[in-house]
């Protein structure tokens, strides 16, 4: 199955209530290509339209010019199943962890009993074993985010759109989550588009970092990250890592 993402000459203008009719440019001539099973981060200052870009890809907004292709499908005309996750975990507080995680299957009217058995190994892999009956409020921030990530993973799609999933976590938890995410991703391999404003996070996790400008957001640089996999935390102390970082900072400053 083709799970690449291609974005061509994407433009989007937001017509707010109090502007002069020209509108507020959100995205300007965005071109982007993500290969199947590639991990790509989008890095940019806040308000540069990177979250909007994910919404467009997820098919949540359709008021734009240009084209988006997920494989051969265009989400403007057809619902393309993707996995989508936000900074906010969006777990339902009245549901147990397990029934939160199984929500995508419940929505598709899938076989919940079967799914419950099938995801046992995943529950363990996502570090949630033994907590199936806990309520979200009884879990730590990292666990809630992992539960949300597992729920995201169970949405049937080969493309994962992650919108700053770790931004609300403390530094140490965030580091653990990054280590864990790379290891899980290296095993399961889906196409990932990861929005962040954390430069280290982008370099450490990705095959490619796409840098966006301030509003109206456009791609101002793509940097291929050539570290081998599996990724190791020590990499962030190497001079190559610093070079990547320097590169990105220069792009963001320009």
């Amino acid at each position: 199955m083709d799970n690449s993402i291609r974005i061509k000459e994407l433009n989007m203008v937001y017509n707010g209530p109090d502007d002069d009719g020209t509108g507020l440019g959100v995205l300007q001539n965005v071109n982007l290509e993500v290969q199947g099973n590639e991990f790509v981060s989008i890095l940019g200052p806040s308000g540069c339209g990177k979250s909007t870009l994910l919404k467009l890809i997820a098919g949540l907004e359709k008021d734009y010019d240009g084209d988006i292709y997920l494989g051969n499908d265009n989400p403007r005309y057809k619902r393309v199943p993707v996995c989508y996750m936000l900074q906010k975990d969006c777990l339902m507080p009245w549901r147990s962890l397990l029934s939160n995680v199984l929500l995508p299957i419940e929505i598709k009217n899938g076989d919940l009993k079967k799914a419950r058995n099938e995801i046992q190994p995943l529950i363990a892999e996502f570090g949630l074993a033994g907590f199936e009956n806990y309520k979200p409020r009884q879990l730590s921030g990292g666990m809630r985010q992992r539960a949300a990530l597992l729920r995201t993973y169970l949405m049937d799609g080969e493309i994962m759109l992650l919108d700053e999933p770790f931004a609300a976590l403390d530094e140490i938890t965030r580091m653990q989550m990054q280590d864990w995410l790379t290891s899980v991703w290296e095993k399961h391999k889906k196409t990932v588009l990861f929005v962040t404003h954390d430069i280290d996070e982008a370099i450490y996790l990705s095959d490619k970092v796409v840098v966006m400008s301030e509003r109206p957001g456009t791609v101002i640089g793509e940097i291929k990250i050539d570290f081998q996999r599996p990724r190791k935390r020590e990499m962030i102390l190497t001079s190559r890592f610093s070079d990547y970082k320097k590169n990105i900072i220069e792009l963001l400053r320009a």
Binding site: G59, L60, R79, L86, M92, I107
Partner: peptide, 25 residues
């Protein structure tokens, strides 16, 4: 909005979102 969007991406229509998220809330 966030919850609505997540549910929409999961393929929930208006009634399903209403039943699963709105009413319990």
């Amino acid at each position: 909005e966030d919850m609505d969007n997540i549910l929409k991406v999961m393929g929930a229509g208006k009634w399903k979102s209403f039943r699963l998220a709105r009413i319990p809330q």
